[in-house]
């Protein structure tokens, strides 16, 4: 049983790492800002979620799991909002840095 659980978390963590790598590849290969934002928001959030799911196995207590869950939600909310803001500034061209 323990071995099965270990195997499961290793698989989850490896899958998470794969999505992180996909995000990096997308960041480098995709042609413009908007398409890169796609890779950033989707692949990374999924990768982080999978890694955290895999790490649940090593959590010392329930609060730690809750912290990971909150962290994931925070990252998703801030990632989606940040990409919206970046895209909006780029689209309207009224940012201070363009």
């Amino acid at each position: 049983m323990n071995i099965l659980l270990d195997l499961l978390s290793v698989l989850l963590i490896l899958a998470g790492a794969f999505f992180f790598i996909a995000g990096t590849v997308g960041l480098l290969r995709l042609p413009d800002l908007f398409t890169r934002l796609h890779a950033l928001t989707k692949a990374d959030n999924l990768g982080l979620g999978l890694i955290m799911l895999g790490c649940v196995r090593f959590a010392p207590d329930g609060l730690y799991i809750a912290k990971m869950l909150l962290l994931w939600l925070l990252i998703m909310a801030s990632g989606a909002t940040a990409s919206h803001l970046i895209a909006k500034r780029a689209l309207r061209g009224d940012g201070e840095d363009y």
């Binding site: 999505f19 996909a22 997308g26 989707k42």
Partner: peptide, 8 residues
């Protein structure tokens, strides 16, 4: 996520 990964 898989969609982006596949395309990239």
């Amino acid at each position: 996520g898989t969609d982006v990964a596949k395309r990239v």
